[in-house]
């Protein structure tokens, strides 16, 4: 079950959509025509996914919410009732959680919601992996710098320098990279 929010200028159209989503076991937590209170509604309703008409002004509000809650973004499904959607889908970065669907019929929306969520989760996993890799690389750089200082100051070999960092980390229950960062900051250097 997904908590879904619908933003559409056309209440009749979104009522049909709500029925279809409810029948499929989802829960529509908010349905709005977008008149300036979108932000409050998103905050209150806490949807898992937002379905929005591409011509709704509230698109800018949602885009900013994503910028602010970068670590916990929500998938957004955009739709338009003309061919524009098809073109824009190609322009929007693959994997980012904006998906444009052409038109909005009861039969089409359910598989699209499923695919959008699946692709969104896939993309989030990839992004997390990339972020982890970046942290690892940054950590390695810092540990190397700290080793360099120990080698210079204490006349240690590289292995001895690393062993010293590791021992300190273990004694204090810290990560090696954190010990290295502390050492560098004591030296007045930035990690």
């Amino acid at each position: 079950m997904l908590r879904i929010m619908i933003v559409d200028q056309d209440p009749a159209r979104s009522a049909v959509l709500e029925q279809a989503l409810t029948d499929a076991g989802h829960r529509v937590v908010a349905r709005t025509v977008d008149e300036g209170s979108l932000l409050q509604i998103v905050t209150d309703a806490q949807p898992d996914v937002v379905i929005i008409d591409m011509e709704a002004p509230g698109r800018d509000t949602l885009e900013d919410l994503r910028e602010v809650s970068r670590d916990n973004p929500k998938p957004i499904i955009m739709f338009s009732n003309n061919r524009d959607g098809e073109y824009i889908r190609q322009a929007v970065q693959a994997g980012v959680s904006a998906y444009v669907v052409d038109g909005l019929s009861k039969e089409r929306i359910l598989p699209i919601v499923d695919v959008a969520i699946a692709r969104f989760r896939e993309f989030q996993a990839l992004r997390r992996e990339l972020a982890d890799t970046k942290v690892q690389l940054a950590d390695r750089k810092i540990v190397d710098k700290a080793k360099g200082i120990l080698i210079q100051r204490k006349g240690l070999t590289e292995e001895q320098a690393y062993a010293l960092l590791r021992k300190t980390a273990m004694n204090r229950g810290l990560r090696i990279a954190d010990v290295a960062r502390t050492l560098l900051s004591l030296e007045g250097m930035e990690g």
């Binding site: 011509e55 709704a56 002004p57 509230g58 885009e63 322009a91």
Partner: peptide, 12 residues
Amino acid sequence: ASWANIRDKVAA
């Protein structure tokens, strides 16, 4: 209706 639309439609 939105700056996001301007950006996306020019890009597309």
